[in-house]
């Protein structure tokens, strides 16, 4: 049973075609990985699904409900919640105030206590978010999204800039909430992390879906290696 169905979504910015007719099925209960080179349209896809950017064509179905994408507030109330590629938290406010804001539209503010523990925020509740170490800030960004008890969590490169053990902590956090019943769309450049986490993987290139399959299938496909994995390895060799 698919939770999110993306039907022929197209997004243009002036002459730039960011999404050229994307169709994807994200089954309920999976961690769905999405990779692709810079500028492939991954963030734009998250923007469309979360209601931040209106697509020029196409639609989405969420659960049994057709007629999306919805404006961002309605998307959130349906349980579609996203994080941002550039970490976003209320930098001028304390962690406690950040969580108080997340609690405003949370259907279950009591869950925040557990989140605070799981995200390692208990010792920093009264610190200003802008002064937090980078990894803690990233966790705060995810905690704000999880506080809304999403059905579908859209994570835009959560692991970027994190050290290895921090990536592991992040992975454990996502797995724990996933086990609690959340479906996850995970956009990530850290290929190893993505392949380890995901049940299914899609590859996006220049606004089009190149491949959908299991992580193992993905790593064997020549065209994927060419457009993405190969280019990454070449980058690393530079």
């Amino acid at each position: 049973m698919s939770l999110l169905r993306i039907n022929g979504v197209e997004a243009r910015f002036g002459g730039v075609v960011a999404l050229a007719g994307v169709t994807l099925d994200i089954p309920e209960g999976v961690i769905f990985g999405l990779i692709g080179p810079n500028g492939a349209g991954k963030t734009t896809l998250i923007n469309v699904v979360s209601g931040l950017v209106k697509p020029t064509a196409g639609s989405i179905t969420f659960g049994a409900e057709a007629g999306g994408p919805w404006p961002i507030a309605s998307a959130v109330s349906r349980g579609i919640v996203r994080t941002f590629q550039q970490t976003r938290a209320f930098l001028g406010l304390t962690v406690r105030e950040n969580l108080r804001i997340a609690a405003v539209s949370s259907p279950d503010p009591a869950c925040i206590e557990e989140l605070v523990d799981a995200c390692g925020l208990a010792p920093v509740l009264d610190r200003v978010a802008g002064d937090l170490p980078y990894a803690t800030l990233r966790h705060l960004g995810i905690a704000l999204a999880l506080a809304l008890k999403p059905r579908l969590l859209l994570l835009d490169e959560p692991a970027v800039g994190l050290a290895e053990e921090e990536v592991e902590r992040l992975g454990a956090l996502v797995r724990r909430w996933h086990a609690g019943g959340i479906t996850v769309l995970l956009v990530e450049h850290n290929v190893r992390f993505l392949m380890e986490m995901s049940d299914r993987v899609a590859v996006l290139d220049r606004g089009a879906v190149l491949f959908v399959g299991t992580p193992a299938e993905c790593q064997d496909r020549q065209e994927v290696i060419d457009v993405y994995l190969g280019r990454r390895q070449a980058d690393a060799a530079d």
Binding site: S50, L52, I72, A73, V76, S77, V81, R82, F84, R88, A89, F90, L91, G92, L93, E97, R100, I101, A102, A103, V104, S105, L144, A145, L148
Partner: peptide
């Protein structure tokens, strides 16, 4: 109040506020 928290969110980052379901 909740409205006050929402106002702070608007002041700090209106896009993030929207993404967190703030009206």
């Amino acid at each position: 109040s909740k409205l006050g928290a929402a106002c702070l969110a608007v002041r700090e980052d209106i896009t993030l506020a929207r993404a967190l379901g703030i009206r």
